[in-house]
Design a protein around this nucleic acid. Structure first.
Length: 824
DNA sequence: CTGGTAGGGGAAGCAT
DNA sequence: ATGCTTCCCCTAC
């Protein structure tokens, strides 16, 4: 008799070989596994799936109640009906997900076993696809080697750095890599084997002008075709370095395969346009299958256990991907003068600064045309128009997306990576987060938004304290990735603790990798929020609370660890509130949330050090920013951006300067001394950035030269300091070495304050953002100024960021040094 | 045995 | 106490 135990549900079918042998010749469709593959849900229990996917209720029966249900006829019939309903629900789910037609298509494309496709073996599908393709071309296919052999092959070659960007790393890093590799091997865990996609540093903040989301259609398959990347075309390297792009003219097997898939998909999509309704879904599934197959090829090249494992090819593909994205960013910023605020692997987001959706669209058309000119296969496309967007971090943002149905626009909120899209946060923190996000994106005034968020926090705290929140809202869900017993530090993991205890006290038969465990964080009744033990020890299954009064929800944990961080992150770039203030609303000790000084962050040092004095006074003694013309090589003082666009605010004070032709520089972006027509005297963003950088470097070196001069005017003694900040006394000025002939003290000729002031002045000249916060003006004038500034922003962005980085780096260094002095 | 890498963020343990 | 590293989980692409 075969062993009919449940199989490892993390992989393969939910059935052991024993069960499989009992159903030999039949296909097994495990709707649990299919759902996990095809859907994104917090929980994959039949109850949840039935509710969310089929909109049907399922009656749950606890395992321990089943024996008693056999005792009475009515309850036995109820049990039978429930079992029957479960079977129907599973079947309905299968049809709902179109599992059979989809896996059928996938199998037909790849030529593998349907049963395997149903098990989700994606690597095997690609393997068979390639086996057939190469066999057809009379190639001898590679033998299947073990993962171990593949990894060993990797290790014989010198290991490359993960970041392929710069090769200038020291030997220590290589050693570190190897050590890491060793531990990975022992633990059976793999770190990344090669570098992947490029993620741009986001320009964080809340945007309320249209943002364009452009992305390359299936980037990696397109790269393979664009550059003819294949086993048959790419020259192998012997030193483990990334191979060069092939110059081979004849199309490789991989690119041809992909081209066929793409063309077939195009044909199917064409057929869909005038297909009868009954055929429509069939075509759609066919089309999906073609896309899925094309997209999964790259992954298998990088999969170390694949028969067609080819790390060099995978590396080459991702390298091209990074370069393509970077080239696109450069083109958009430097040639099209648009501001790129973020990008991830195959996409860029462009801040248009426009309120007009049609104009924004026309920019998108222009950009896509320019980018697409450069490639044969690669196509960039407009993927989204965002009316407003909150950009928090890499891979974390939300936006109001404008979509069209029959040319009628409607808005949907898109949320990526934020806490509320993750299953490992409690429903209550997701709800609060959603509320805050909606407020932030509502377009209401800053005051209103902040007020409503504060109000909501106060309210939810009240409700929690009064026990008005349902238990379900506190539930956090996490997935087991190993057997619960297999965790080395299981005692620190709440979901592991819960799983182990549930198995121990017999509430269930046990858990497997892949199971999702719900839990709530509790504290013992009576012991207040002390948090005496680790939080993993205080995790309980929700059912454990229902019939046991000993453990109650740890409200303080939820306020401080679930709600506060979520809201606090969302509000990071919202003015008028702060983590402390938010903590206050939640009744937490706000001193614990005080932002520790982080001088590298966006603190405005100029106002810290110099107070709020008028700009004229503040930058007194600073050298002007000089721009020299590329054509006539004359130079002129660069005017302050913001004053160029709001002449009305301080007309009188600057009226003499207004006569100067340079005043118009930012409007025209041309040398004021060159002829007005023609291409003479045009100044590009890169040129501005270079010139600013050079001048900033000049002041930096002036500072580092550390010239000391005697404060006695008659002495004129000048020397160079021995080192920077040698001592506190030296700092304040030591006695002139010319003593006793002179009674003066040595002073620094160019102090850090001077340098700081100078760099801040450059920042001020190029500033298009902070100035808006400081100005008090009426709405209409403000709007026109904002428009002007957002137009000029892409032009000065590069220069501004260069100089502000220099300034912040300096400030960072000084503060560290002065801390050191105090400590000694 | 059962595609990839990049990256954020929680929690604990460790060295300082 | 505090920064750093490690593990874990989940997500974006």
């Amino acid at each position: 008799m075969p062993k009919l135990t449940k199989g490892n549900s993390m992989f393969g079918a939910g059935a052991s070989p024993g069960i499989m042998s009992c159903i030999a010749g039949r296909l097994l469709c495990d709707t649990f596994l299919c759902s996990r593959d095809l859907l994104k849900e917090v929980s994959y229990s039949l109850t949840q799936l039935a509710k969310n996917q089929l909109h049907k209720d399922r009656k749950e029966i606890a395992p321990q109640d089943i024996p008693s249900m056999f005792q009475k006829l009515e309850s036995l019939i109820e049990l039978i009906e429930c079992a029957q309903q479960d079977a129907w629900l599973s079947l309905e789910l299968m049809f709902h997900l179109s599992v059979i037609p989809l896996t059928h298509q996938l199998t037909k494309l790849s030529g593998n076993l349907w049963g395997k496709t149903l098990q989700g073996a994606r690597a095997q599908r690609v393997e068979y696809l390639l086996l057939h393709a190469f066999h057809e071309q009379k190639y001898i296919n590679p033998d299947k080697t073990s993962a171990h052999a593949n990894e060993a092959k990797d290790q014989r070659l010198p290991k490359r750095r993960i970041d392929a960007g710069s090769a200038d790393r020291n030997a220590e890093e290589f050693g570190g890599d190897d050590a890491k590799l060793e531990t990975d091997h022992v633990k059976g865990k793999k770190g990344p084997a090669y570098a992947g996609g490029l993620v741009l540093e986001p320009k964080r903040g809340l945007y309320d002008k249209y943002i364009l989301l452009l992305d390359f259609n299936s980037l990696y398959p397109s790269i393979i075709q664009e550059y003819n990347i294949c086993f048959t075309t790419v020259e192998k390297t012997t030193d483990g370095s990334i191979p060069h792009l092939p110059s081979f003219k004849e199309i490789g097997v991989l690119p041809k395969l992909l081209r066929d898939l793409v063309e077939r998909r195009k044909r199917v999509k064409q057929m869909m346009k005038n297909a009868p309704r009954i055929k429509l879904q069939q075509h759609d599934i066919h089309q999906q299958a073609l896309k899925l197959t094309a997209n999964s090829m790259y992954g298998c090249l990088g999969f170390s256990n694949s028969r067609f494992y080819a790390k060099p090819l995978a590396e080459l593909i991702t390298l091209q991907g990074r370069e393509i994205l970077q080239r696109t960013v450069d083109l958009v910023q430097n040639n099209l003068n648009l501001e790129v605020i973020y990008g991830d692997t195959d996409s860029i987001m462009i801040h248009t600064g426009l309120d007009d959706i049609e104009k924004a669209k026309s920019i998108a058309v222009k950009v896509t045309q320019e980018v697409n000119k450069k490639y044969q296969c690669l196509v960039i496309d407009l993927d989204g128009l965002y009316k407003r967007m909150l950009l928090l971090k890499k891979k974390k943002y939300a936006a109001i997306k404008v979509q069209f149905r029959n040319d009628i626009p409607y808005e949907v909120i898109e949320r990526k990576g934020l806490d509320m899209v993750r299953r490992d946060w409690s429903l209550i923190s997701k709800e609060i987060g959603d509320f805050c996000l909606n407020q932030i994106l509502s377009g209401g005034s800053c005051d209103d938004v902040v007020e409503s968020i504060h109000g909501a926090l106060v309210k939810v705290r009240e409700e929690m304290k009064n026990g008005e929140i349902q238990l379900e809202k506190y539930v956090i869900t996490k997935t087991l990735t190993k057997q619960p017993e297999a965790y080395p530090d299981g005692k620190n993991q709440p979901h592991v603790q819960v799983a182990l205890r549930m198995k121990q006290n017999g509430s269930c038969t046990g858990f497997s990798p892949g199971d999702t465990i719900p839990y709530v964080i509790c504290c013992e009744q009576g012991t207040s929020s002390a948090g005496s033990s680790g939080m993993a020890q205080r995790a309980r299954h929700p059912d454990e609370l229902k019939d046991n009064g000993k453990w109650i929800i740890d409200i303080d944990y939820y306020l401080s660890q679930q709600i506060h961080p979520v809201v606090s992150r969302l509000c990071a770039s919202i003015q008028g509130t702060s983590p402390e203030r938010l903590a206050d609303c939640l009744g937490l000790d706000s001193t614990k949330f005080q932002r520790r000084p982080n001088y590298a962050a966006d603190v405005d040092h100029s106002s810290l050090l110099l107070g709020s004095v008028d700009d004229c006074e503040r930058y007194e003694g600073c050298e002007p920013l000089v721009i020299s013309c590329p054509s006539c090589s004359s130079s002129f003082d660069c005017p302050v951006v913001v004053t160029s666009f709001c002449g009305s605010t301080d007309d009188e004070t600057v009226s003499p300067a207004r006569e100067k032709p340079e005043r118009n520089f930012w409007q025209s972006l041309r040398c004021p001394r060159c002829p007005i027509d023609g291409d003479m005297g045009r100044v590009s963003p890169a040129m501005i950035a270079n010139q600013v950088k050079r001048q900033a470097d000049h002041f930096l070196s002036l500072y580092y030269r550390n010239t000391m001069t005697c404060d006695d005017e008659t002495c004129n003694y000048t020397t160079r300091g021995l080192n920077l900040r040698a001592s506190g006394d030296f700092e304040r000025g030591s006695v002139c070495p010319n003593y006793p002939h002179c009674n003066g003290h040595l002073l620094k000729k160019y102090t850090e304050a001077d340098l700081y002031k100078q760099l801040s002045y450059f920042c001020h000249v190029l500033d298009t953002e902070k100035c808006l916060q400081k100005l008090n003006m009426e709405a209409s004038a403000r709007m026109s100024l904002e428009t002007s500034l957002s137009r000029i922003r892409p032009v000065v962005q590069m220069a501004a960021s260069v100089v502000s980085k220099m300034r912040d780096r300096c400030a960072f260094g000084w503060i560290n040094l002065s801390d050191l002095v105090v400590a000694v």
